[in-house]
Design a protein around this nucleic acid. Structure first.
Lengths: 358, 358
DNA sequence: AGCCTATATGTAAACGATTGCACCGCTGTT
DNA sequence: AACAGCGGTGCAATCGTTTACATATAGGCT
């Protein structure tokens, strides 16, 4: 490989030994054109002559030039990157959405900066506003619990900053969001259980205050209503989305003297925790109790028993939110009130069955 | 909040309505000092007078100034960011490592750019070298399968570019790496099974060519040897780390006329797939066959049965590799040959038991 | 008093790209 | 022959920092 780089040819930094990286100047010199032409040849090929384009391309090849993003970003007042704020990076549910975001961002020349909102106490928000000042062009927010007050104080009018929330969303956030039909999903779950013949259907909720918790609970009630089943408040157990919460709920279920014969869990993880603890106590799923989850994470199909659940298009959730964000960044402003909702589907596997005859 | 920003006070871009963001010039004006002093007051507080520092800090407060990273990066020839190359973002195993990296990078003022190496075919490598030119100061590589030839062609001498590989590592990569004791882990697994009384112990490997596959297989053999058990080649089934591979292996196990009574799986996910498929066929774990995994991902403790496995410190793996990378970036060059190896521990749960008496 | 040092500040030159503007030559029209 | 229009190109300003260097001021020493 030939390295052509006349600028400062004798500089040898003895410590780092960093090889000088070619600049647009070097390319221009080799190609025998001005830097303006080089820049144009690369960004708007159709605006330079055939000949110039060839020369530039060859010079790029020979020098091994690659654009310095920092310089470009400074000049263009653009970061060519988006920020992702997730509540919990190690949660497989979120990582799949993040993968979806990357699938769109990457090929469009955008980097993806990932932060965890739980970070450092006050956390992501200093991050976020700090980032907003030059590192990213916008955010995808995956955390519905986020403290908006803080952000508002920093960023004068939030609605100006390109933000798209995905999955969970703060209700009062004046930004587009992409979600799934949580209410409808919960209704489908209930209906499925009822179709199997269950009349005593319970629910383990998500964490208090979370929007997903609210909508799924709402769907749960609506589902029961629509098929004429009474809502038994004592069958609604408070929980969280994680494994531990399912375990805790199992302990409560065990102590009930009138037990539901089927449980709708607010997440797959929760369902795993529930089933796991029950099995340990000698109960069997679905023989003793049917269990249905929500999310359809990858492992669900391989759980024992394979989990019946409401499947969310997580990858598509990420892809769509990234697309919307990129659109906003590029000025193709959707109306603020854009809130697409993706459909969810019932996936029947082995954790649900007809109730044991009395 | 007071916005002080004299530069171009009448500019109102009607389309975007972007609020002008204050620069260091604005701060300097308000504080009544030069930009140099502002810069110094923020970066080296001890090098300016008490008075100047106070004035600058107050001006920063009033203007809401936050440094423009693009400009800083350009000037300093530094990106203040690290790149992470992962083979599969939605895999919970990797996401935990990524979380660990972020825990170190974030607080140190480094952004974390995440890319998936499977991306776009040729993929991460154009990404990677492109990034190397200005977006990141170094990489943590989580993908051992990576095509080094490509990278080499781009980056003249790879050893100059700060790279740390974590978990998996290409054997010929002249870069520090942080791994876990895979061989030792495999030995522990085998020993545990032997201690329970198993003599017919099998293994489902990872994907061909992967370094983890090799070292774990090696440990498996070594373990058998050290306790005087023969290595039955027909008990070694080829696989992959994912769920599907476990399922496939289960089918093979079923057709064997002389079956191992215990299986050491190359990953937890694989173990899930194996157990899941077996259960579906009416076999029981650990009664019919003991199963031990490798990784100890979060859900393992809640599987049915709870999975006995070799636990890796995934978060620490990420944290340590991030620390090493940051050190290298800051010039505190470790020797090239630094390859710390973290310990793994056996976690005994319910998927292993003594073999059924003949 | 004179000189030297140390400390605190300001001035201005980078960093490497993009892009508004001016210019040049050519073609086609009047 | 004059001129408008246009595609292609180069010049040079600009983005917002950091930092080498110059300068100023104060204080300590002989």
């Amino acid at each position: 490989m030939v390295i052509i780089c006349a600028r400062n040819p004798f500089s040898i930094r003895t410590v780092t030994m960093k090889t000088e990286v070619p600049t647009i100047q070097d390319v221009a010199r080799v190609a025998g054109v001005s830097t303006a032409t080089v820049s144009r040849a690369l960004s708007y090929p159709e605006r330079v002559s055939e000949k110039a384009r060839r020369q530039v391309l060859e010079a790029v090849e020979r020098t091994g030039y690659v654009v310095n993003e920092a310089a470009r970003n400074l000049r263009q007042q653009r970061a060519n990157a988006i920020g992702v704020i997730a509540p919990d990076l190690s949660n497989p549910f979120f990582s799949s959405i993040i993968a979806g975001i990357e699938q769109i961002a990457g090929p469009n020349g955008f980097g993806m900066l990932v932060t965890e909102s739980s970070m450092t106490g006050q956390g992501a928000f200093d991050h976020a506003s700090l980032l907003a000042a030059a590192r990213v062009d916008g955010f995808v927010v995956l955390d519905g619990q986020i403290d908006l007050g803080r952000l508002r104080n920093r960023v004068t009018s939030l609605s100006q900053v390109p933000v798209v929330s995905a999955c969970e969303y703060p209700e009062d956030l004046p930004a587009p969001s992409v979600t799934v039909d949580n209410t409808g999903g919960a209704e489908k779950a209930v209906r499925h259980l009822a179709d199997l013949g269950h009349t005593k259907i319970g629910h383990i909720t998500g964490p208090r205050g979370n929007i997903l918790t609210t909508t799924r609970l709402q769907g749960f009630r609506a589902g029961l209503n629509s098929i004429g089943l009474p809502v038994r408040e004592d069958f609604i157990l408070p929980g969280d989305f994680n494994l531990e919460a399912g375990k805790l709920a199992a302990e409560i279920w065990r102590t009930m003297d009138d037990r539901p014969t089927a449980m709708f869990c607010a997440s797959d993880q929760q369902a795993f925790g529930f089933i796991s603890q029950l099995s340990r106590q000698g109960f069997r799923v679905p023989e003793d109790v049917s269990v249905i989850g929500f999310d359809d994470i990858e492992v669900s199909g391989f759980f024992v028993p394979a989990l019946t659940t409401i499947s969310q298009p997580r990858l598509e959730l990420g892809r769509m939110s990234a697309r919307m964000l990129l659109d906003r960044i590029n000025g193709e402003s959707h109306r603020e009130g854009l809130h697409p909702q993706l459909d969810v589907t019932l996936v029947v596997r082995d954790s649900t069955a007809a109730p044991r005859p009395e």
